[in-house]
Amino acid sequence: MKDLEKTFLDSYNTHSDQIFRFIFFKLNDREKAKDFTQEVFMKTWVYISKNGAVENDKAFLYKIANNLVIDEYRKKGRASVRSLDELMEDGQDFGENPGESWIDKMDGEGALVLIKNLPETYSEILFMRYVEELGVSEIAAITGKSVNVISVRINRGIKRLKEIIKSKKI
C-alpha cells in the first residue's frame, strides 16, 4: 500500500509542472492553473485509492486536467486570447535591433500568446507535443483523436506558426 502512495507522490514531483503549464496554457490564469493542478492530483488519488494504480499515469493526469478545463469553459466561457499586436502595445518588443531575433526578446508569456494565436486545433496539439513533449500516441489518447489526425495537425500547425513568425519579422 505504501508503494502506491510513494509512486503517486513521485508522480507529483515528475508531472506537476507539465500539468500546471497545460492548464495555464488553456486558462491564461496562473493562480487558477496552480489550484487546478492540485485538484487534478487529488482527483487522481481518489481514483487510485479506490481502483489501484493506473496504467499510464501521465495520460491519466492530462485527461483529468483536460476535463477540469472543459468544466471551467462551460462555467465561465473560454479565456480570451491576447493578440500579438496587443502584446506589442504592452511593451513586448519584437526586436528591431539588427542581428537580434524578436523571438529572443520574447518572454514565456509572449511565446504562449504566439502559440495561442494559432487555431485551437493546432495550438493545443503543438503545445502538448513540443512543450509537454508528449508522444503522438499519448496526445491521441488524451484528445480521443487518431494518431494520424494528430500527426497531420502537428505538421500543419508548425507550418502556420512559421507563417506567423515570417510575417512578424518584416
Binding site: R21, I103, D107, A111, I115, Y130, I158, L161, K162
Partner: peptide, 8 residues
C-alpha cells in the same frame, strides 16, 4: 519555432 516552445 523550437525556441518559442523552450520559452514556454
Amino acid at each position: 519555432d523550437q525556441e518559442i516552445f523552450k520559452k514556454i
